[in-house]
């Protein structure tokens, strides 16, 4: 039990956010940290407004790359994960191999992709797609295994045909795993695209970060940074909201827990980069 004197956790979180934003404005203003290191929030918002057409154009490029990378990572990852996780033979054969390969820092493959596909959007899509593919696949494979075999047994003993078993039992029961995969895949696709745009690119928000960093225009760096922050948090909130609506009947939180216990990547995966 929490002692009465402590304020509610949600309030503390809001207070921390407000303090952070205030500090962002006031600390540089008072000169405690030079504006080169940390431009004030108001200067950041001002350049974001002044250059809004540049930032919108960059955002569109980034979103286009993220969407295609997500298609590769989530489409490929969820299907492969469902197949590998669902078929016992493939699971024993391949799952340990995939989790070993997962140890490789994917970012070292990015120079390969730029050499193959050039510095345009293609290399970012390929890199972010592969970067997000493995975690999505591993988490879906782990999630699929948590489907209660009793469900299928019950359906079978009531005389369900194979089609009925798939559409009425297996697909609804695997939805939590699929949505967890979508959430993870989108977050990782954003990370992958931003990282690759920062490394070698000619467009996109990540490119704006690097471009303005090299000319020491800190306000524009932070404007791009703020946009990426908002983009990734917004995606996460959206994914959670959809997930909650669709899988409301499932006992919430069961699938991710099981995924972690299986040694698959649970939440920590998204922390890369």
């Amino acid at each position: 039990m929490r002692p009465r004197a402590l304020p509610a956790p949600a309030k503390v979180r809001w207070a921390m956010l407000v303090t952070l934003l205030l500090a962002w404005e006031l600390v540089p203003r008072t000169g405690l940290i030079p504006e080169l290191l940390l431009p004030a929030l108001s200067s950041t918002l001002k350049v974001l407004y002044q250059d809004s057409h540049i930032y919108w154009a960059a955002l569109l490029v980034t979103l286009y790359e993220v969407a295609l990378a997500m298609l590769i990572a989530c489409g490929g990852g969820i299907i492969t994960g469902a197949v590998v996780g669902g078929i016992a033979r493939l699971r024993d054969l391949l799952l340990p191999v995939f989790s070993s390969l997962y140890a490789v820092p994917m970012v070292i493959l990015y120079p390969v992709f730029t050499a193959w596909f050039g510095i345009g959007s293609e290399s970012k899509i390929a890199f972010a797609g592969i970067y997000a593919f493995f975690p999505v696949m591993l988490s879906t494979a782990a999630g699929i295994r948590t489907i209660d075999p009793q469900f299928i047994l019950a359906a079978r003993s009531m005389g369900a045909t194979l089609t009925q078993q798939v559409t009425r039992v297996i697909i609804p029961a695997s939805l939590p795993a699929v949505f967890a995969g979508l959430r993870l895949g989108g977050a990782l696709a954003i990370i992958g695209v931003v990282v690759s745009e920062m490394l070698t690119a000619a467009a996109g928000i990540g490119y704006l970060v690097t471009l303005n960093r090299t000319i020491l225009d800190s306000a524009r760096v932070f404007a791009a940074l703020l946009m990426i922050l908002v983009l990734s948090v917004a995606y996460y909130m959206l994914a959670r909201a959809i997930e909650r609506r669709v899988v409301v009947w499932q006992s919430v939180g069961r699938a991710p827990k099981a995924a972690q216990a299986e040694g698959g990547p649970g939440v920590p995966v998204a922390a890369a980069a």
Partner: peptide
């Protein structure tokens, strides 16, 4: 923490360089 995880940490690299 869940929000923090979905943020690309690489965007803070310029701050570390500065």
């Amino acid at each position: 923490l869940f929000y923090v995880f979905s943020i690309p940490k690489s965007i803070f690299l310029p701050m570390f360089i500065l």
